[in-house]
Design a protein around this nucleic acid. Structure first.
Lengths: 221, 221
DNA sequence: CGTTTGCGTAACTTACGGTAGCGTAATAAT
DNA sequence: ATTATTACGCTACCGTAAGTTACGCAAACG
């Protein structure tokens, strides 16, 4: 009987388990309150541990945030990269929109962390939003495509930022009013980006098969 | 000679003058550092006054911020409203984009305040960004237009948020890389929104006359 | 001369990031 | 089985920064 774990006792976790637990809790709090308004104390409290634990694992508040952001960025970029890696231009637009919205739906807190203000210490070059990094990557792709198609490659970053801003803002709005399902939002977004307001279809549809759609949707985590 | 104002003496301003001065200083700081990272002390210091002055005029940090945001919102909504009040649909899109970008250019700090994270106390319903209010107003217009054109009015907010997000994100990016002039950015943005990526012109142009353009650009403050 | 108005000094209170030092449970070694 | 060692965790504290307030002063104005 003395060997039985007392369920009232504070659960002692392994180092890595505690690490991931803290990361998840921090993600939720950073997503909801932002970086500055989130205290290390609350993160520790929610994990049922004391503050020094956080410092043991991440060295401090910024360290924790940095790890969190790094993982999240890698994840998003990977998803979008694989979405636009093949297919016709239109398909790439559709797949990118869909991939991003699936990310917003399934990794909501992660997305909100990225879309919130970053701490000044991490803001490279005065840019506060982390999504600019995403936009810059898209810019790269656009610049190449623009050159190939004979367009002004100087304008590529503009369009990249426009599309990223479009999707992220809709994503933020969509996290609160979860009315239309992913495919519908993605189809509208892709329609706007591809056809424009002028030739907007009354009932936009994605050009991908149901099978491909299901395959894309299985990317949770 | 004794009546002459001593230029070394601390300048005593009238109540309203001090008020507007504090508002301008606060706008600059909030734009640059965000709400939480801006201290009342620094605002007061830049105005060469002590902290209690701020409390006399605005009751506190949030009061100051609230007044600031209220004015800025009113201004921006007024500009956009008058931009989309008449003309063909395409013209409205172009004028809205141009009006917003002129606002971003001429009232840069104000725009940055609106696009930054709002204090949790002012976030109605979990929405952190103040630009959602703008998007909601656009939603109203879109809903009406959609109904008239036989489109699904349920999708109107989606498109409204998409366009607002598009413009604001580009606006943020543009405040740092001031390369293309307003008309050029506006023409690209309007082209993307109206024609879409598919029918993107190589060298987009606004459909408004140079006179109308100059008239729009004179809206500084 | 006195009243109003604009303003400063100096404190209080709270909250937070960060640290030092100590305790305790599990595991390995004797 | 007892001891030594490692891993995990806690209490308590410090310094600082920031929001807010109580009180008093001094310049302007009639």
């Amino acid at each position: 009987m003395s060997r039985r774990k007392n369920s009232d006792a504070p659960a002692r976790l392994s180092a890595s388990a505690r690490r991931t637990q803290l990361l998840e809790i921090a993600r939720g709090l950073f997503a909801q309150r932002g970086y500055v308004a989130t205290s290390v104390e609350e993160i520790a409290a929610r994990a049922k541990v004391s503050k020094p634990i956080v410092y043991e694992h991440f060295g401090g508040k910024e360290g924790l945030y940095a790890v969190l952001v790094d993982r999240e960025m890698e994840y998003v970029v990977a998803r979008i990269s694989e979405a636009i890696s093949s297919g016709t231009p239109r398909q790439r637009v559709e797949r990118a929109a869909l991939a991003f919205l699936i990310y917003v739906r399934d990794q909501r807190d992660g997305f909100l962390v990225l879309s919130r203000d970053a701490p000044v210490a991490l803001a490279r070059g005065g840019m506060s939003s982390l999504l600019n990094d995403v936009a810059e990557r898209v810019s790269k792709v656009f610049t190449a495509t623009f050159k190939q198609a004979g367009y002004d490659s100087k304008a590529a970053p503009l369009y990249a930022h426009a599309l990223v801003g479009m999707v992220t803002f809709v994503g933020q709005w969509w996290t609160e009013t979860r009315k239309p399902p992913v495919e519908e939002v993605a189809s509208h977004l892709a329609a706007l980006a591809w056809m424009g307001l002028r030739h907007l279809p009354k009932r936009p549809k994605l050009t991908m098969s149901a099978a491909a759609l299901a395959k894309a949707a299985k990317a949770s985590s």
